[in-house]
Write a protein that binds this DNA or RNA. Sequence first.
DNA 1: ATGGTAGAGGATCTA
Length: 257
Amino acid sequence: MKFATWNVNSLRVRLQQVVDWLKFYQPDILCLQETKVQDENFPLDEITAAGYQSVFVGQKTFNGVALLSKQAGEDVVTAIPGLDDVQKRVIAATYADIRVICVYIPNGESVESDKYQYKLNWLYAFHEWLQEEIVKYPKLALLGDFNIAPEDEDTYDAVAWKDKVLCSQPERDAYYGLLKLGLVDSFRMFEQPEKVFTWWDYRMMAFRRNRGMRIDHILLSETLSNYCVSCVIDKSVRKLERPSDHAPVMVDLTKMS
DNA sequence: ATGGTAGAGGATCTA
């Protein structure tokens, strides 16, 4: 089984890239973030034609998440229960006995911003909900754009980004708080080269200079991690014309088959 | 030098 995540930064702009990617890699599940499309405009026909089912929750202009899957999901949840939030940032579904949660964690803008407080509050509420979910579902995968670089090695310049948004200690504490619930960073299960990132700013030729950050993650519950044989970042799509600023991340749970 | 680019939507906001 292959699970993947990709912040597409507008599904309508990236639709052909997503369809091509699905056809090439044939993941069992693809989590999308920043679809930026209202539900009535979701490109259902094109996704269906590619052989995938979809569940989604979107809004005008910003945010929006979706789960594309070969098999139908059950027990779909489209918000953090109990959190009063107009922003569409989470969707979860169960496939066989595996709970898949797709998240678009707030960016935060800067540590001085009100959006940073919103991010920390959101992470607290998400933690509370995830704690319940992982008890209910021992096989759980959490995929998405976390907008957090867990370690200095996940940044192109740790000195420049020290205590900045995406790297600040409260954000990293919240990230490791999620791991403490019983999740493993699939990327770090394996030996990896240095300077491997998932996001590069559109500006300042950041991609060409590999000035990126590793902020998109696939976290697996310990039960599920036993089946994981690889975690790769597909940098190739970032080189396409009109790319998303994020690259997809994919895990292979082949041992499960 | 606090810039630059991309997306949505139709002036700025978000990232």
